[in-house]
């Protein structure tokens, strides 16, 4: 027993030397190498894909209105609305998360029903026309995108509120829609922040 403990201590001591050396390699040099590459080659992406109010790229948070990769609350009835969010009070990047409600949870069923009524009223359509992504919270709570169907549903309202033609707004949606990667990966998605920046520009604000 004493012999075993002695051996374990010996192995632990060797292990400690190995751990310290490998921590320098894997915990310091490796992330710094990736940092050096990313900051030199793709600084905008490495710093969070920040957008200015005119849609330009920036790495200065003071100039930014958000990240192309992160959804945000849209407190303006004239713009496209994002999906519901369970991150904090909504789209809080410091508490990214989903609702984690199960498929038969009565709380989720109620939420879906409420959201359907809300969206249907806002857009002036029937409840049956509201697409699933409009009434469900994403896993991250920071989903930057909505489905083309949800965007299309919002086109008449956004056009009306901004004094734009529906076709013009539909073109903006198409411009900011990303199709399936390589024709088969993921789902078509419309980046809400980029689209709203374009709507503001078109409306001359």
């Amino acid at each position: 027993m004493l012999q075993d403990l002695y051996s374990l201590a010996r192995y632990a001591l060797a292990g400690l030397r190995v751990l310290v050396a490998l921590t320098l390699l894997l915990g310091v040099l490796y992330p710094l190498a990736v940092l050096g590459f990313a900051q030199a080659a793709v600084p905008w992406r490495a710093d969070g894909s920040l957008l200015t109010a005119t849609g330009g790229h920036t790495t200065d948070p003071g100039d930014a209105v958000g990240s192309a990769l992160l959804g945000q609350l849209v407190d303006d009835p004239t713009l496209f609305q994002p999906r519901p969010s369970a991150a904090g009070d909504g789209y809080d990047p410091l508490s990214s998360y989903g609702s984690n409600l199960g498929p038969d949870d009565p709380r989720l069923v109620d939420l879906v029903r409420e959201r359907q009524a809300e969206v249907a009223e806002r857009e002036g359509v029937a409840v049956a026309q509201v697409p699933p992504d409009a009434v469900t919270a994403s896993g991250s709570g920071l989903d930057p995108a909505i489905s083309p169907a949800y965007a299309a549903l919002q086109v008449p309202r956004v056009a009306r509120e901004n004094g734009l033609g529906e076709d013009e707004v539909r073109d903006l949606v198409a411009e900011h829609t990303t199709g399936r990667a390589l024709g088969t990966l993921g789902e078509p998605a419309v980046d809400v922040l980029e689209l709203n920046i374009a709507v503001r520009a078109a409306a001359g604000q």
């Binding site: 999906r83 989903g98 609702s99 984690n100 409600l101 199960g102 498929p103 038969d104 949870d105 989720l108 069923v109 879906v112 029903r113 359907q116 509201v130 697409p131 699933p132 992504d133 009434v135 469900t136 919270a137 994403s138 896993g139 991250s140 989903d143 930057p144 995108a145 909505i146 489905s147 990303t178 990966l185 993921g186 789902e187 998605a189």
Partner: peptide, 24 residues
């Protein structure tokens, strides 16, 4: 299947739009 996915028209709760059902 399930009440909420049936009501919403798809099991998108907790899923990201850019991935969708199949990739998740």
């Amino acid at each position: 299947p399930g009440q909420a996915p049936q009501l919403a028209g798809g099991a998108m709760e907790g899923k990201e739009q850019r991935f969708g059902l199949a990739a998740t």
